[in-house]
Design a protein around this nucleic acid. Structure first.
Lengths: 225, 225
DNA sequence: TCAAAAGTGTTAAGTTTACACCCATGA
DNA sequence: TCATGGGTGTAAACTTAACACTTTTGA
């Protein structure tokens, strides 16, 4: 039976992470500035090689955790990038994943030690290899998914104002949303719950804080933003 | 620079194809009945190993062509299946792809030589490894894509009746569609063109044949079915 | 002559969009 | 007192869904 496999070549398999975060009305990506050769000074996604004792999905989680210190982060597959010369050093088949997280949850020490920086998604520098294609595809997938499933909340704190939620979706879609229409739609989602807490950091008057109730969402999974 | 890679393990990389075809009002998958060990007698998707001289996408095209004789087939990535023990023989990282084609274009000799058979998608047998998960994911992706892009035409002959088109979409969605509403929507798509030809095979009266005009579609890519 | 698929419009319900002003507060 | 972001409702436009009968023809 080994013969069936043995005649075929083997390949390095890598994962690359497109890490989305939201802050100050902006969508950002976490990028590494390479301070080593090759391609020193160039920007890249966080990546790593698949090991023998882990699934590909687990490799993505591990690589993300190495950079951010976070586990239990929302991640989705983006796709396989497998052209022959995509990595000029060696042939590497890469699996891209996107992750959504709250910028405030991060360990800044760890970011610094990797020369990692948050970069506005509309002002991305050139990236090595095919990382730009990965970002493009991840962004499209994430946008589509965010419109029909409540994944955006992974980029917000547990308690958030409706203005924050609206800015988040404006950043995801890259367009403005009418405030009254937006709030009308939120009002119809019983699983987006108003608390009695008020956030004063964004305005003098203060705004009510809301939370996402996942149990309630599971009973009524209608979502459209 | 080699050192950077050398310390990491390499893996077999495979592609598996979820091949959709449409015939007699039914969506079908092309499956192989293994007439060799291991897992003799069990059903599987068509697959093959990535080679050194081809991209992953090209490997999928090659594997599809080996089975069907067809090139230039519509294919999309489904995802990476990379759990550790998914293939009990050896560790293999598999990329799943789906393909849409017209059953009538196939070379039946070639299918027989691979013990390949069309199976109704609602009556699938058990499949080896994680092939069932691949099919499930492919089906969902295909359904979603077919609702906003005119990919379904890849499963029809160049000339088709509106009844055929409607059955196709009913099979994709697994639900009935109102005939008048369906035809109203088709009527609004200037790139679905009525010809003066009539198909008599489906009814005594005969039905007008239509064609998909891709140039016209490129000028007006609105599509929703 | 009749069975079987082809073809054809209208109306009601629901959804989406556009739009402007008052409120509460801290500086 | 005023600048800033928070909060609120209605009507028109558009989209979707429901619904039934006539036509053509070969067997």
């Amino acid at each position: 039976m080994e013969n069936y496999y043995i005649k075929h070549p083997k390949f390095y398999v890598a994962v690359d992470c497109i890490i989305f975060g939201f802050d100050h009305d902006e969508l950002n990506l976490l990028l590494l500035k390479r301070d080593f050769e090759p391609a020193k000074g160039q920007w890249s996604l966080m990546g790593g090689f698949l090991q023998s004792d882990e699934s590909v999905d687990d490799a993505a989680k591990r690589v993300l955790a190495e950079l951010t210190g976070l586990t239990n982060v929302y991640m989705e597959q983006v796709g396989t990038f497998g052209t022959i010369n995509r990595d000029p050093g060696e042939r590497v088949i890469s699996q891209a994943y996107y992750a959504l997280l709250n910028i405030r949850d991060l360990d800044n020490q760890l970011l610094e030690s990797h020369s990692a920086f948050w970069v506005n998604i509309n002002k991305l520098p050139d990236l090595i290899f095919d990382h730009k294609d990965m970002v493009e595809k991840a962004r499209n997938l994430m946008r589509t998914k965010a419109s029909t499933e409540p994944i955006g909340f992974n980029m917000l704190p547990k308690l958030f104002t409706l203005s924050q939620l609206q800015s988040l979706y404006e950043a995801i879609y890259g367009e403005n949303i009418d405030k009254r229409n937006f709030r009308k739609r939120i009002g119809e989602m019983s699983y987006i719950v108003k608390t009695d807490k008020i956030d004063k950091s964004g305005s003098k008057r203060g705004a009510f804080l809301y939370k996402f109730n996942n149990n309630a969402y599971m009973k009524d999974t209608k979502f459209k933003l």
